[in-house]
């Protein structure tokens, strides 16, 4: 592990980052910053802090700065995060998925890297509230994570007020019960409608059970992976998807950097990545 920065280098780095990105870190965040800097310096083979700063300053593509910023901006998730992608699901993608299917057919959606459950529950709420054909099909929601602790929290479905801040109050009242001041539990029908499971998405054996999936949400997860991990994850998604199925990535992620097998599809609300027919 690379040694922590000396105080002058730390100040210089924080000033540089603030100037370029607006992100601001104080001495109190020292450990957080040091760890992420060390991780990226090792990843690019920088032999010194000076070498790494040269890369950040002069790299024409700015790719390394973006990677570092992604690492520095990990946030807790919340309901309806990046809602435009959920809008895309109910306004465009699902209508395309069910084209040619009969009422009663299955529609399968997988939230890969579901963390504490906000994403799959958000998908469920969006379907129930905003997809007009929701009653015509049997919809199966799968959610997975590699972390058993967050999965337990996802199954429990209990959230603090801040996780709900993007939800209209009417939806909070409709789908949640306040179990104590500031803590809300999602309704049992929703908790029981989602299949939560422990899955490493780059392990073919663990992903093998996911087949004929129509839409995969994998947002803000692959930023934690190296290039090979992202590539393997893309391969697993390719195997798991039904022909013409979609992958939805986080707003700062691009499939073109991971795999050439998917076709980007620009919908009015968002860009998704589609597995070809064959």
């Amino acid at each position: 592990m690379t040694a922590p920065l000396d105080p002058d280098d730390y100040d210089a780095f924080c000033t540089f980052l603030r100037g370029r990105t607006g992100l601001s870190f104080t001495e109190a965040k020292r450990y957080f910053v040091d760890r992420r800097l060390a991780e990226r310096m090792t990843a690019v083979g920088a032999e010194s802090f000076r070498d790494y700063m040269n890369l950040l300053r002069f790299q024409a593509s700015g790719e390394e700065l973006q990677r570092l910023v992604n690492l520095m901006t990990v946030n807790e998730t919340y309901f309806f995060r990046e809602k435009y992608q959920l809008d895309c699901l109910v306004n465009s993608a699902l209508d395309e998925v069910v084209r040619g299917r009969k009422p009663g057919d299955r529609v399968r959606i997988w939230s890969a890297g579901c963390a504490t459950g906000e994403e799959p529950y958000s998908i469920a709420i969006m379907l129930l509230e905003h997809w007009g054909k929701v009653d015509e099909y049997e919809i199966e929601l799968y959610a997975s994570d590699i972390d058993s602790h967050v999965l337990k929290r996802a199954r429990d479905g209990v959230y603090e007020e801040r996780a709900l801040h993007m939800l209209p109050r009417g939806l909070v009242a409709k789908y949640f019960t306040e179990i104590e001041p500031g803590r809300w539990r999602i309704m049992d029908e929703l908790r029981e409608s989602i299949d939560f499971s422990l899955v490493n998405i780059v392990d073919p054996a663990q992903v093998a059970r996911f087949r004929d999936i129509d839409v995969i949400f994998c947002r803000n997860l692959l930023i934690y992976f190296d290039d090979l991990g992202r590539r393997e994850a893309a391969s697993m998604f390719y195997e798991a998807l039904a022909p013409c199925g979609f992958v939805c990535l986080g707003h700062s992620e691009s499939m073109s950097r991971m795999s050439s097998l998917f076709v980007p599809r620009r919908f009015p609300d968002a860009i998704l990545y589609q597995k070809p027919q064959r």
Binding site: R108, L127, L128, D135, E138, I139, I194, D195, R209, R211
Partner: peptide, 15 residues
């Protein structure tokens, strides 16, 4: 409700 319990779903068996 149109959401069905996925565990009772019909994922194709792993061969």
């Amino acid at each position: 409700m149109a959401l069905v319990k996925a565990k009772k779903g019909t994922l194709p068996p792993v061969v």
